[in-house]
């Protein structure tokens, strides 16, 4: 029974990782930028979710508000921060992004206070019994929500004209441009979607922990980086699998390796191990 429970816990955690990491890997696939500040948007999503829920009482409205607001903020970050430095060496954007992320965390601390916010009446805290396991509704919502959002993303990318333009730009920006696709708008779309997904993840994490705090993005951010590297940078399918695998490995590792490594170190031990064997990620073709 412990086996199933650990697996489900791992899947819940893995779903959250997936929502964060997909946005990151989309940005990397398009621009070759490691967008560390993405986790700042995740944190902001959590804050907006809690504040709007407390004000209106509707979690759904809060999630949508968070996704749209943070999505637009993602576009602004691209336009003001990354767009001007894309022609510089890759580490420039990486370090700029780290700087931006640290500054964002501090701004959250100053705006919302250092101790974090909670839901006044935490929604979805009732438990439901599935196959002998007691799950919180929140955990079910996390898994279902992730599946819906990622499914929607897959539909958008595979079945619509917009998605075709997007995929074309990722594969070959110049060629796509010469076919009349507005590359800049594709980048805006990319940042909007990625950031909106991160915001949704922020709301869901706030739901699971019933807490948002200024630094909640830190660990998420570094782990999401590890995940997209594991998945093979820019590879969405690989990232999804890597997220779920890491979620499960962590949930088992905490039980069986907890004495030697803490939870966050397990992710990176796994990352380093995989990279030493497969330097371009788990699913890279040889």
């Amino acid at each position: 029974m412990l086996f199933f429970e650990l697996t489900v816990q791992g899947l819940v955690q893995g779903s959250i990782y997936a929502l964060i990491a997909v946005g990151l890997t989309l940005v990397y696939g398009l621009l070759r930028v490691l967008h560390v500040a993405h986790a700042g948007l995740f944190t902001l999503g959590g804050y907006i979710g809690v504040i709007v829920t407390n004000a209106t009482g509707s979690l759904l409205l809060a999630t949508l508000t968070a996704m749209v607001t943070v999505g637009f903020l993602g576009i602004i970050i691209y336009r003001l921060c990354y767009h001007p430095i894309l022609d510089k060496p890759p580490f420039v954007a990486l370090i700029a992004s780290i700087g931006l992320f640290i500054a964002m965390e501090e701004i959250f601390r100053l705006m919302f206070g250092p101790y974090g916010l909670s839901y006044d009446a935490p929604p979805l805290m009732e438990t439901v019994s599935i196959a002998g396991m007691n799950l919180k509704y929140a955990e079910v919502v996390v898994m279902a929500g992730t599946a819906t959002l990622i499914g929607g993303l897959a539909f958008l990318a595979e079945k619509t004209r917009l998605g075709a333009a997007w995929r074309a730009t990722v594969t070959d920006p110049e060629m796509a441009g010469s076919f009349g696709i507005d590359i800049i708008r594709v980048r805006y779309l990319n940042f909007f979607i990625g950031s909106a997904l991160a915001a949704a993840a922020g709301v869901l994490v706030a739901l699971l922990n019933n807490l948002v705090e200024p630094t909640m993005g830190s660990v998420a951010s570094y782990k999401a980086l590890a995940i997209i590297v594991l998945g093979g940078l820019g590879d969405v399918r690989g990232t999804l699998i890597a997220s779920l695998v890491l979620g499960i490995i962590e949930s088992f590792g905490t039980i069986y390796l907890g004495a030697i490594l803490d939870r966050d170190a397990i992710a990176f031990a796994f990352l380093i191990l995989v990279l030493m064997v497969r330097p371009r990620g788990m699913f890279a073709k040889a």
Partner: peptide
């Protein structure tokens, strides 16, 4: 490790080494 992985992959690997170090020390 830097002989195996490069650029962005190396940046993330070294970041991982940092977390691993702290994670091991803590325990």
């Amino acid at each position: 490790a830097s002989l195996r992985v490069r650029h962005d992959f190396l940046a993330i690997t070294t970041m991982g080494v940092g977390f691993l170090f702290v994670g091991i020390i803590r325990q």
